[in-house]
Structure formats: structure tokens, C-alpha cells
Design a protein around this nucleic acid. Structure first.
Lengths: 254, 254
DNA sequence: GCTTGACCTTTACGTAGCGGAAAGGTTTAT
DNA sequence: ATAAACCTTTCCGCTACGTAAAGGTCAAGC
């Protein structure tokens, strides 16, 4: 099959201007030009356009797309599989946003309380995704599947009121931590209050509190980039500070 | 809580330039300017920024966002609910794209043959209608190899529009199945909805629906590794779960 | 008290990926 | 034969910022 600009445009759901632009920048040249100067595209161009649109959908710049698909080492199959992975990631991202909007509705209706951080989950893009991929497994291996699963289970069983309380606590922790950071002293009253709030918060998700586990978790906040990032949003070094405060609080600071 | 540009930027995952630009165009003005001319944002601005980002995510132009959220009749709750609807639509669109990429991989590996039209499903949406008149015959000739053997005949007669509908259904089935799996109960409302969607889907490819055949196919999903793999992409045991849901749906669960 | 570095400010020019209009040639249908 | 519907190139405009440049502010450490 041969297509003129407009026909291909309609087939692919892009404008003819777009196709001319792609020709202009050398991204997609027609198979040939007929005697009247019309652009004529063939099936090879169709496949190429499809590839281009996949990349475009993923937000890749046209110049980069050009380099990618023109490179001699370009492996379509591998590229497609990468497309799939990224699309699935984007889908997860979207699901996060949907959760966010649902939470925001609940927040609006007064059913739950959202922290400021929470209000923007899903908007920040890959950073979190990447970390999840990098550290997700590792965490489970390091700190035990059991504990993670059990805490998940317990979370599912919470009443809405309890859940709201939990969220309020979380917000309070962040606020107090921020205040405590200005003292600079993990042994300060404010820092110790933060640690105590954190213990209360844990009690919602843990079956049994122990100082050992609490101290272990605090160390994790420093070791694991996901958590470090979470707390360091307040201020660089916040995770470390929180850990130190908790180590003092639990008496494991030696 | 009060935030300077950079802190708010980090919280929301945007650049400080973006915040200044939003101030410049009057989209989001800081709560106040301190004595040194610094922009200071409060919690009202946080909520507003969140709203803005929801709209931006949906591709709404900043000028329009401005008009929307500044209009006196602006109803945040209603807006949020509309956001949700649109995000869910986008998610379905993404699922279509994922299906497309998976098919393209299969096409590449020689397992199936894709028509030119098919190569762009998911990229476009409503332009499909027009193409039907123009390319109808050609498509019908090409659609043949697409599906499982027994459904070939009926598929050959599908219009592109119907084909798109079929793909949408397929995506919906996966979506609903995923949700149903969290309930863990094949008799749950969601699971039964999945079974019903599955029946609708079958109606596209079967001449005549019967509960026996439906139940038989469900069993096949478990017995045949190819199908098991297809559904278990979602989660291990998904095929089994779907079978059980269908057995209950068809009343053949004994 | 002074420096350093991380903040903040405004102004201003640059860019990607097209949209759209102008001015004209070609093809197809009636 | 004429209109409608294509096609062409050229060029200017737009959005949503990125990226300097040139300078003021603030807290920390020496």
C-alpha cells in the first residue's frame, strides 16, 4: 500500500503538518517523491512511524528518537520490550495519581487527612519508580517479608477513623521533625517527641513494638534511599537526624 | 506550614522556574512576599497547586486552568471527580497501547500478522470511524490471522470500529480482573462483573453464546499453559480465579 | 566579622513541536 | 470547465518553560 501525507496522517492519527515536519527534520522521509512533488509513503515508513509514535508517547525528544532508530545497533524487538516496560510503569504512575485524586476527594469530604507530601504523590515521576525497582526487593530481603506483609495486612484492617488518625500522626511527625531539626540536637526534647510520635505511628502497623525493631527501622531510614528521600524532603540530613533521635529514644545509641 | 519557592518546588516535584512562571502569568500567586522579596506559599497555595497539576496532567492549557480555578462557579469536588474519570480513561487508553505493543512484539516474532490500521490502535481514538469507509475491504482481508483459530471467521467480518471496541473490552476485562483479585473472592461483585465482561467479549467472536461453552473455555484457561500465562501476567493464579468466577457466573460450579 | 555557599530576585533570550495562514500547483469529480 | 480537495514551500506564532546573567539575602563556620 502507498499513502500520501494526508492518508497516512489519518491512518496514524497525526496531522499532515506533523509528517511534513518529520520529513523536514529527517526523522521520517517518504519512500519517494512523485512527479508532482507529492510525498509517497510505503509500508516500511508505516512501521517506522509506529516506532516513532511509541517513543513519542513515552516523551522522548524527536532528535533522540532519530538517533535511536537510525543507529545501526537499533534492535526493534528489544526496543519494543522496553516500550512495554515503560508503558506499564506509566500505568502504575497513573494508578498512583488516581489513588491520589481519590484520597483528595476523601480529604475534601473530611473523611481523611492528607499530609502536604501526600498531596503530590504521583506527580513526581520516575525517581520513586526507579527507587522502587532498585530497592524494593532488597528491603524485603533485608528486613523480612514477614514484617512487611503483616504490616500490610494490618493496614487493610483499619477503620477509616483509625486510618485518618494514622495519617494525622504522620503529618505531625513531619512537622515535629522539622521543628526538631532547627535545634540540631537529636537528644533535644523536640527530637525525642518526634521519636515518640514515631513509636505511636508504628503501633498502628506493628503487632508488637520492640525497641530493637524500632532502632532497626531507624537505621533502615538511612540505609534505604527511598526512605532517606522521603524524610530528606524536609531538609538534607533529616533521615539521619531521625535515626539518631530514635537510637537515643530506644537507648540503642552505642 | 510555609514554603519558599524551592521547598514547594521540591515538595510538588516541579521546578522553581515553573512556580515563578505560574506567578508571572497569575496562575498561582504566593500567599505573601516577605521583606526581602521572597515568595512565601501557604497551605491554600499547596491545595491550589495540586489542582493545577491535576489539570496539567490531563493536558489542559495553563490559561484554561487559570480560568477554570478562578471562576466563581468552580466546584473543586466536582472537578476532582472529573479528574478521576479522565485519569481512568487515560489508563484505559494506556492499556490499549500496551496491548498494541504486545501485539507488535508478537507480530515481529512472526506469531501474528497486524494490519496497518492495527498498528496505530491506541494512538488515535475516533478517527477510526472514517477509515472504515475507505479501507474497509482491505482490513477485512487482513484481519484473518489475528485471533484464536475458532473465532477467525467472525472476526473477519468485524469493522475497525467493532475491532476497537473489542480491544477496549479486552482491556476492561484485565482491569476489572485485577481489581477483583484483591477481593480474593470469585463470587464477589467485581469478579462477577469480570465474568460478564468476558461474556460480552466472547459475543464478538462467537456466533452463539452458551453457558456450557463459556464454562468450558474457562477451564481451558487453566489447562492450557498459553492462556494461563496470558492471564497470570496480572498475578499468579489469575487464570484460576477467572475460571472460578466464570463457573459461578455460568452456574456450572459443581 | 568575614567569607562561603546555598538560597532568593528580575530580566531576557532560546527551544521544541508543531499550528495556521499565505500563495500557489495538481488531481478528481461532476 | 470549474470547483473541491488535494498537494507544495515559506514563514511567522505559540506554549511552557530551560537557562544564563547579574545581583541581593541568609545561616554557618572559621
Amino acid at each position: 500500500m502507498e499513502y500520501t501525507v494526508q492518508k497516512l496522517a489519518q491512518l496514524a492519527g497525526v496531522s499532515s503538518r506533523t509528517l511534513r515536519y518529520y520529513d523536514e527534520i529527517g526523522l521520517l522521509k517518504p519512500a519517494r517523491i512523485n512527479s508532482s512533488g507529492y510525498r509517497i509513503y510505503g509500508s516500511a515508513e508505516i512501521d517506522k512511524l509506529q516506532q516513532i509514535l511509541f517513543y513519542r508517547e513515552l516523551g522522548v525528544e524527536l532528535e533522540k528518537i532519530k538517533k535511536i532508530i537510525h543507529s545501526s545497533s537499533f534492535d526493534s524487538l528489544k526496543a519494543l520490550q522496553e516500550h512495554r516496560t515503560k508503558l506499564v510503569e506509566n500505568k502504575k504512575q497513573l494508578e498512583l495519581l488516581i489513588t491520589n485524586v481519590e484520597k483528595t476527594i476523601a480529604n475534601y469530604e473530611g473523611r481523611i487527612v492528607m499530609s502536604d507530601q501526600e498531596k503530590f504523590t504521583g506527580f513526581k515521576q520516575k525517581l520513586i519508580n526507579d527507587n522502587e525497582a532498585k530497592y524494593g526487593k532488597e528491603i524485603r530481603a533485608k528486613y523480612g517479608n514477614e514484617k512487611v506483609d503483616r504490616s500490610n495486612q494490618k493496614l487493610m484492617g483499619l477503620t477509616p477513623e483509625q486510618y485518618a488518625e494514622l495519617q494525622k500522626l504522620e503529618a505531625e511527625i513531619m512537622d515535629t521533625l522539622q521543628a526538631a531539626l532547627t535545634t540540631g540536637d537529636p537528644a533535644s526534647e523536640l527530637a525525642q517527641e518526634t521519636a515518640d510520635l514515631h513509636r505511636q505511628w508504628l503501633s498502628y502497623t506493628w503487632d508488637k513494638y520492640s525497641e530493637e525493631a524500632h532502632a532497626g527501622l531507624a537505621q533502615m531510614y538511612v540505609d534505604d534511599a527511598r526512605f532517606t528521600a522521603y524524610y530528606d524532603r524536609i531538609q538534607a540530613g533529616a533521615a539521619k537526624f531521625l535515626r539518631d533521635a530514635i537510637l537515643i529514644y530506644t537507648g540503642k545509641n552505642k
